[in-house]
Design a protein around this nucleic acid. Structure first.
Lengths: 114, 114
DNA sequence: GTCATGTGCAACCAAAGGTTGCGGGATTAG
DNA sequence: CTAATCCCGCAACCTTTGGTTGCACATGAC
């Protein structure tokens, strides 16, 4: 029910730039800070900071290769994040359904009474 | 595929405190800045700011009542947000599946060849 | 009227996202 | 080998955002 433990993963994917970065890394099969920044509206340094955040929570990992630094998505960790997203979504969805059921019950009761 | 349009809703539910506020509002059937702040680790003013954010994106709406100001969740808008969460989750999930399929295909090809 | 309570507004602080500028390794050209 | 280049990391600085305190105003209780 609670989302307390997973706030780090959440806030990691909560940033629009970071979500687009994950998209780019997934579709491009990895990338560097420079290549990513060319496809994003921010500078290389900003991308590097975001990559640091994603790296810290384990969503990506880096492979130094010569003067480049190739980043790739950790698929298992991203799968975990996706699972948590759907978990929260499912919880809210369930509560919304319950509220709707209760509201309908109240309305039925009022119609019977009135 | 893209999440560009819905960044506002995303970032609204991207904050852990705001998610807990939505939870509290849903389970408690509404609340004021004061009552919410009593159940959260931040001050009333911080809660009020968050309520302002949630109000701006339409996830909650306020009902002035005397000297109080009751906030309630806009269920339709929250349902929209949930849909977008699952949408992004599903997109990533699909891409992860595709990557896994391709990786397996490559491995099969290598086994045949080697 | 007086007192308490809930709100809103303003000033101030700290952290996060973003930018520019610079210096340091690895790679390629000469 | 040297020089130019490219990619990267680090540091300083700015702006926005989440958070706090303090205060003034309005409304309900006495």
């Amino acid at each position: 029910m609670s989302t307390a433990i997973d706030d780090e993963l959440w806030s990691a994917v909560g940033d629009p730039i970071r979500r687009r970065m994950l998209d780019l890394l997934l579709s491009g099969g990895g990338g560097t800070a420079t290549t990513l920044s060319e496809q994003l509206p921010v500078t290389r340094q900003a991308v590097a900071k975001h990559l640091g955040v994603l790296d810290r929570v384990g969503l990506v990992h880096a492979t130094p290769s010569g003067r480049e630094r190739l980043y790739e998505v950790d698929e298992a960790q991203l799968a975990r994040a996706v699972a948590q997203l759907s978990s929260v979504g499912a919880a809210w969805d369930a509560r919304l359904r319950r509220i709707k059921r209760i509201a309908e019950a109240i309305q039925r009761a009022q119609e019977q009474q009135g």
